[in-house]
Design a protein around this nucleic acid. Sequence first.
DNA 1: AGGTCTGTTCAGCT
DNA 2: TAGCTGAACAGACC
Length: 251
Amino acid sequence: MPELPEAERARQQIERVLGRRIVAVDDTDTWVCRPHAPGEIAAALTGRRLSRAHRRGKFMWVETDRGPELGLHLGMAGRIAVDEPPATNAWDRFSLGFEDGGRLALHDRRRLGRVVLQPDLSHVGPDAGEVSREAFRARVGRGRIALKARLLDQGAISGVGNLLADETLWQARLCPLRPCDTLSAPELDALRRVLRRSIRAAIRHGGVHTGEFIAARERDGACPRCGAPLARATVGGRTTYWCPAEQPWPL
DNA sequence: AGGTCTGTTCAGCT
DNA sequence: TAGCTGAACAGACC
């Protein structure tokens, strides 16, 4: 499940193809490439070179030489494939072919990924790994919504998905159900520090699945620190696990 | 073999 | 406005 760490690794994959000339574009999946018509992205990109690869949260975009930006999102099952042969099934939803014979593809079984020209990121909040302390306090510590639901709101801060949210809240010993405006400034600051640490660890180790809490949740459903059986509920529309002993609420 | 679950984003509601 | 619900996708699993 791609979250910020997976998106960062995907961005690094894209960097491997910078500078190569595009000679072929497959943009025929009208769902993944909506609202573009087939051939529209191809016409805009053929003959150009990708020049810089950016990311904010889970959203990626690539600059081209004198051409439009190309926005990419992995959805929940997407993966960037670089210089791999085309998938034998129909799971490559978009691809670029380069003059050196290499290619870049969005491999996405579920078609929840997106490819779009000139992406609009105005509704996307600051990157969860780079947001300032002041912005974090203001954006996360406000309102009566459940803390976890706010962490998942990409307009507040961007990049946190379901697994990273559970991992981070467990590391920070905060209950996912707590209304945001019950958190003190020191609690918010500590949460931000833990979040940054979780993100860096996940990027380093290869993804959110490498988190200690996520592994325990799939293994035996017991808290890795105290052994208490984990609680489970739907929060912010997503399945949520936490340790009721160490992440209590009300206090 | 049907029913449920998965997670991200967006549209549409209160 | 802020927050919630369900749709969209399609495969994994029981």
